[in-house]
Nucleic acid binder design. Structure first.
Length: 875
RNA sequence: GCCUCUGUGGCGGAACCGGUAGACGCGGCAGACUCAAAAUCUGUUGUCCGCAAGGACGUGCCCGUUCGAGUCGGGCCAGAGGCACCA
């Protein structure tokens, strides 16, 4: 600052509260972000996972939508026709819970929440095409979903089957797996039962191979998510084979004469010392009819909950059926047949052969019941004659031993040999098994999409004719008693069979809400179509180019959506395999926690923090009482470590909130919300605004003629500007927003220090620089950027301006500074012409005083010159 | 148990293909402005030795490859996440 400057008048601070509302109105009025379905520009579909309308947005939403918005605005500036829609994942249990607790109707509760959250989202200044908005509970949406269901039903992709479900006996309903916590219903706390009951399924297993194999084509997905999906699908190659059964207890019917088991370790059959049936196996149930003890054992097994930890710790228990099994390849040997609690009904055939030496579970079981443990795979470095197990099963590599004709073979060769022989004998066949199960979509709930099926005593499950769709939810329902209101509604379920006209009943199950979210992104392309999707619009917009959301959906939602696109392709509704060509999973927003008296959690807004570092102390504002500062955790209602986006937007502005959540951490990692960080972002808002005002006075007019030449400082500013522009663009393209922010900060400082400088071309360079800066900030702080744009003398919208072009020549410096090392240690640096010859660089490097000193009089043995990078002198 | 990821100043984090480690932000320290404060601006800030010039050390630990390693390879340690009686 020059000392002769007269004191500046107090400046007006930038007022986000007023300005942000203004620009939101302007964008709205001009339909700036409306995306046409027919357009010459290349398309870009940017989507964030749509929210559940809980009533209020949280900081996780702010972070998610801020990221998507930066990308969408940037792509728009880059000349793309950008589709950036928003909607509501609106069916689900919370609305019914609210109905039970406060006697409101789920629809009223949901739509009120949507209105409130929409207002909040609007205050964020997102570049959304609101004309495409819908909620999945809109009749118009679930009408189309019912058509989809029927198309899948007709193709055999939706079917009714029986299967085990999680049944909450208090709430009288099925729960999703994720709603069962430690074996108890998350709401009622009742111990969840496993029940066999009719349920609707989607045949996702039909696509198991395809869903697995296509993962390799998703090169813009995080590796982590692809791995999780691959594990979930869980393909394993093995052998189905049949043991002959014998024994006095064996039922007479021919179907019980053989036991089919599945194994991935056919090489170890000679080590098999028992067979085991699942408690749910049909043979077990058949045997239990005549065996009370077995009956009791089966019941005991069923009582052990589904909680994963319980299972892992549970003791291996078995019940000897008295039957004997013999393997067709092993003459004269029979092994006992047990029912064992660790054999799953849902995988393979529900029966196994146990090889204790090479499977830890079997090892524990055999130890408990005194069964033989014979090693048949010997590690390569061990002697087969003396090899013994070290107190646990061995599942590593080795050679086959103690196995007759398999001895000496490798594991792989032995597997192949056994498979071939079993196939030749017609006693076995190679088979690929999957962990993936068909998707059970029935929910005994009111607030969901009704399954459009009519049950007729004569005709069975009959599709509701398309002209009778939609099957709408009745409004006059009660929630005063547990259970499904659709079942007890006096009239709703009663109807006539569309086939025979006799009295029939409607299906009262509704669909899992994950069905709703499996195709909503396709509906956004044509949200008023009379078909689920308009084929042309879907073809133009899909797949989603960039999808952004939380890692918690890595499997369920993302796998279901991949299945749905294949199902919709099979039913000729569209033609697409993969819904999301680019996926990004962002981290959570965290905050430290505060615990007051009586271990009550306190909101950050109720707490005052003093001091720094280790001396930080927190006090409850209302009482002044000291409070314990707890660990940093994901913002959650239970820990009350929540910061309300409304409060932040009201006091700092949406731009500040967006800037902060983008700036502090890499987007895939968790970001810690700190008051200091937000204040820092707020300072930058004001600083940028002051800078624009300063430069607006001093810089050249908009559109001024470019000077013929620039002084060195003006050139340096121009170089910095264009380099930053290139780096910011590259960072946004790769969603590295924190890096983009850092480059912008750095350039802002350079620009700020250039303002007082006076030089040929500086006024023009200043205008160019500030405009570049405003463009770069635009996607992140769109309101402030519009104001800056206007302040710089434009009456257009920045949102309509193209992204500035990088002047390539400015990215290349004439002189560069490179490091000079002696024996790999940096000793000095060298500033030299960019195109200097290696010999010239070497000579200059060897002449540096620090280099001479470090060489200590010794001759250079070797000098490595990496052009424009580094010089390393080896002595 | 299996699979995956992550480890860099006081803190969040940068670092293209192996080439000046610590950009940028937060915090700290010093200064300017002010009667004072706020706001703002400037400088400084990895550790150790040194008045300084300068030097030594430094990206979880150990080993290796290389003229050169935060980056590549091998072996550990720690933390986070996913799956979990899946035969």
């Amino acid at each position: 600052m020059s000392s002769d400057q007269t004191p500046e008048p107090a400046r007006e601070r930038y007022n986000p509260a007023v300005r942000e509302a203004h620009w939101q109105q302007v964008w709205d009025n001009r339909s700036t972000f409306k995306a046409p379905n027919v357009d010459k520009r290349p398309k870009c579909y940017v989507l964030e996972m749509f929210p559940y309308p809980s009533g209020r947005i949280h900081m996780g939403h702010v972070r998610n939508y801020a990221m998507g918005d930066v990308f969408a605005r940037y792509k728009r500036a880059r000349g793309f026709n950008v589709l950036h829609p928003m909607g509501w994942d609106a069916f689900g249990m919370p609305a019914e819970n609210a109905a039970m607790e406060r006697k409101s109707h789920p629809a009223a509760w949901t739509y009120a929440n949507i209105a409130a959250m929409k207002k909040q989202l609007k205050s964020m200044g997102l570049s959304l095409d609101w004309s495409r908005e819908f909620a999945t509970c809109d009749v118009a949406y679930y009408h189309q979903q019912q058509k989809l269901f029927l198309a899948m039903f007709a193709k055999g992709l939706a079917y009714q089957g029986t299967g085990r479900v999680n049944w909450d006996p208090d709430d009288q309903t099925v729960l999703a797996n994720e709603q069962v916590i430690d074996g108890r219903g998350w709401r009622s706390g009742a111990i969840v039962e496993q029940r066999e009951m009719p349920s609707w399924y989607f045949r996702i297993t039909k696509y198991a191979d395809e869903l697995l194999d296509a993962l390799s084509t998703l090169d813009r997905w995080p590796e982590k998510v692809r791995l999780m999906q691959a594990n979930w699908i869980g393909r394993s190659e093995g052998l189905l084979m049949r043991y002959a059964l014998a024994g006095p207890a064996l039922p007479r019917a021919k179907r019980w004469s053989e036991l089919e088991v599945f194994t991935t370790r056919a090489d170890t059959i000679f080590g098999g010392s028992f067979c085991a049936l699942s408690p749910g196996h049909r043979l077990t149930l058949e045997l239990a009819k005549k065996n009370r003890e077995l009956q009791a054992f089966v019941e005991d097994c069923a009582r052990v909950g589904t909680a994963a930890e319980d299972l892992a710790k549970a003791e291996k228990l078995g019940f000897d059926t008295g039957l004997r099994a013999s393997h067709p390849l092993i003459p004269d040997v029979t092994i006992p047949v047990y029912v064992a609690n660790f054999v799953l009904m849902g995988y393979g055939t529900g029966a196994i052969f146990g090889c204790p030496a090479h499977d830890q579970r079997d090892y524990e079981f055999a130890t408990k019941y005194g069964l033989p443990i014979v090693p048949v795979v010997v590690p390569h470095d061990a002697d087969p004659a003396t090899y013994a197990l070290a107190g646990a099963a061995y599942d590593g590599p080795g050679r086959i031993a103690n196995s007759g004709f398999l001895d000496g073979l490798s594991i792989e060769a032995a597997k192949a040999e056994v498979a071939s022989r079993m196939e030749a004998l017609k006693k076995g066949k190679r088979r690929t098994m999957y962990r993936l199960r068909d998707w059970g979509v029935s929910r005994q709930r009111y607030w969901g999409c009704p399954i459009p099926i009519i049950h007729c005593a004569d005709c069975g499950a009959v599709a509701v004719p398309v002209d009778q769709l939609p099957v709408t939810l009745p409004n006059d329902v009660t929630f005063d008693v547990p259970g499904n209101p659709l079942v007890r509604h006096p009239t709703w379920k009663h109807c006539t069979c569309p086939k025979c006209g006799k009295p029939a009943t409607r299906e009262t199950d509704t669909m899992d809400t994950f069905v709703d979210s499996s195709w909503y992104f396709a509906r956004f392309t044509s949200n008023t179509s009379n078909d689920p999707v308009d084929a042309k619009a879907a073809k133009y917009w899909l797949p989603v180019d960039q999808y952004i959301g939380g890692i918690e959906h890595a499997i369920l939602h993302l796998l279901y959506s991949r299945f749905f696109m294949r199902a919709m392709t099979a039913t000729k509704l569209l033609k697409l395999k993969e819904p999301f060509s680019g996926l990004f999973t962002q981290g959570m927003v965290t905050h430290e926690t505060y615990k007051g008296r009586d271990s009550q959690w306190l909101l950050p807004a109720e707490v005052r923090v003093e001091g720094e570092g280790d001396h930080r102390r927190a006090f409850e504002m209302a009482t002044g009482a000291p409070i314990e500062i707890g660990p940093i955790e994901k913002m959650s209602k239970s820990k009350k470590n929540l910061v309300d986006p409304d409060d932040i937007i009201a006091s700092f502005g949406a731009d500040c909130a967006r800037w902060f959540v983008l700036s502090d951490s890499p987007p895939e990692r968790d970001v810690i919300w700190t008051e200091a960080g937000v204040a820092g972002a707020g300072r930058f808002v004001q600083r940028l605004w002051r800078l624009v005002e300063d430069i607006a006075v001093k810089a050249a007019d908009p559109g001024a003629t470019r000077p013929a030449s620039f002084g060195p400082q003006a050139t340096a500013l121009r170089r910095a500007g264009h380099k930053t522009l290139a780096k910011v663009a590259a960072s946004i393209e790769t969603l590295r927003f924190n890096v983009a922010v850092a480059h912008i900060y750095e350039f802002t400082s350079e620009l700020q220090s250039a303002v007082p400088k006076s030089e040929p071309g500086m006024e023009w360079a200043l205008r160019e620089a500030i405009e570049l800066l405003v463009h770069m900030v635009g996607p992140m702080m769109p309101h402030l950027a519009e104001d800056c744009w206007a302040r710089l003398g434009y009456n257009t919208l920045l949102a309509d301006q193209p992204w500035p072009a990088v002047e390539q020549a400015l990215l290349i410096d004439e002189t560069i500074t490179i490091a000079v090392q002696v024996n790999g240690k940096r000793r000095d640096e060298l500033t030299i012409a960019r195109d200097a010859a290696d010999a010239e660089v070497e000579a200059a490097a060897l002449g540096l005083a620090a280099v001479v000193r470090a060489m200590d009089g010794k001759p250079a043995r070797k000098v490595i010159v990496v052009p424009q990078r580094i010089v390393n002198v080896v002595v």
